[in-house]
Structure formats: structure tokens, C-alpha cells
Amino acid sequence: MKKGIVALSLFGLFNCYQSERHCVDYKTGSFYSEITIDNVVYRSTFKRTDTLQVEVYNKKIDSSKLRWINDCEVVFKTINPKSMNDKKDIHLKILTTTDSSYTFEYSYVGEVIKQKGIAYKAD
């Protein structure tokens, strides 16, 4: 009985610390992102509508069609892929949000290895 009460108390305590995600705030707009891979920070800017994202990275423009799975998850499909990697769809999941940014993880669809990053509102 005591174990059940302790477990229930711990469950209630951890539930209090779950952060709310306001993903709808980030479905459209202008943003910039930062992703760190092997201690190198990669930055890009992008504009997003409900169905399209246009990104500028290293002075190159990349456009993707968007398919929202739910308010916090989206799949990107490159419009004019130039390589085999560009042909792979990317799954992005918003993990947490603040009033001006969101933390996300992404990977190629079907792959286990995920990267994390932060996107900030540019408006």
C-alpha cells in the first residue's frame, strides 16, 4: 500500500513539471534556427506557411512542401531535390515552446538518428 502511495505521489510530482507546448504559434511565420553538430553551429533563416517552407542556408534557397501530422509534427518534402539525400523526407517534432522560440528534433523519415535545434521567431 505504501509503495502505491509513493508511486502515485511521484507520478503527480513529475506531472506538474511537464511543459505546455503551443505549437500552433510556430506553424507559420518568419524564423531563424540554430543547430549544433559536432560543436559546429549551423544557422539558417526560413519563412513558413501552412503548406510551404522556404529556407536560406549558406546563401542557398531550399523550398519544401509541408505535411502537418498534428500541431507539433511536420514532414518536409524538398520541392526540387538535387541529390539523393534531398529526396528523403524529413520529420520534425516540436519538443518545447516559449513565447519566442521552440526546441525541435528532426531526422530523415524512418531513421533512428535524430538531431536537435532551436528556432526563434524573426518577426
Rank of each mutant, 00 (worst) to 15 (best):
residue 55 E to H: 02
residue 58 N to Q: 13
residue 89 D to I: 05
residue 12 G to S: 00
residue 24 V to I: 14
residue 44 S to R: 09
residue 34 E to K: 12
residue 42 Y to N: 06
residue 20 E to N: 09
residue 94 I to W: 03
residue 95 L to V: 07
residue 80 N to D: 09
residue 76 F to H: 07
residue 114 K to N: 01
residue 87 K to V: 09
residue 28 T to S: 10
residue 16 C to L: 13
residue 16 C to S: 11
residue 44 S to T: 10
residue 48 R to G: 04
residue 111 E to K: 10
residue 39 N to M: 05
residue 65 K to M: 11
residue 12 G to A: 10
residue 80 N to R: 09
residue 75 V to M: 09
residue 11 F to V: 15
residue 37 I to Y: 09
residue 120 Y to E: 10
residue 37 I to M: 03
residue 39 N to C: 02
residue 61 I to G: 05
residue 40 V to Y: 05
residue 58 N to E: 13
residue 46 F to V: 02
residue 89 D to Q: 14
residue 23 C to I: 03
residue 112 V to N: 06
residue 63 S to P: 03
residue 46 F to W: 12
residue 103 T to K: 11
residue 42 Y to H: 07
residue 73 E to S: 13
residue 18 Q to V: 14
residue 82 K to Y: 07
residue 15 N to E: 02
residue 19 S to V: 12
residue 37 I to A: 00
residue 6 V to F: 15
residue 63 S to C: 02
residue 68 W to D: 12
residue 26 Y to F: 15
residue 47 K to I: 04
residue 94 I to E: 02
residue 88 K to W: 06
residue 36 T to W: 02
residue 40 V to T: 11
residue 88 K to Q: 14
residue 121 K to E: 08
residue 78 T to N: 15
residue 118 I to Q: 03
residue 60 K to E: 15
residue 104 F to A: 04
residue 1 M to F: 10
residue 94 I to A: 01
residue 91 H to N: 09
residue 99 D to I: 13
residue 117 G to L: 05
residue 52 L to A: 02
residue 58 N to K: 13
residue 65 K to I: 05
residue 23 C to W: 00
residue 5 I to H: 01
residue 42 Y to A: 06
residue 24 V to D: 14
residue 98 T to F: 08
residue 60 K to F: 12
residue 113 I to T: 08
residue 110 G to Y: 00
residue 9 S to M: 15
residue 78 T to C: 15
residue 102 Y to G: 05
residue 47 K to A: 10
residue 2 K to Q: 14
residue 117 G to Q: 04
residue 109 V to Q: 10
residue 102 Y to A: 03
residue 67 R to E: 14
residue 37 I to S: 01
residue 43 R to L: 01
residue 63 S to F: 06
residue 83 S to P: 10
residue 72 C to M: 04
residue 28 T to Y: 05
residue 70 N to C: 11
residue 71 D to M: 08
residue 12 G to R: 00
residue 48 R to M: 15
residue 102 Y to E: 05
residue 100 S to V: 13
residue 86 D to R: 03
residue 10 L to I: 15
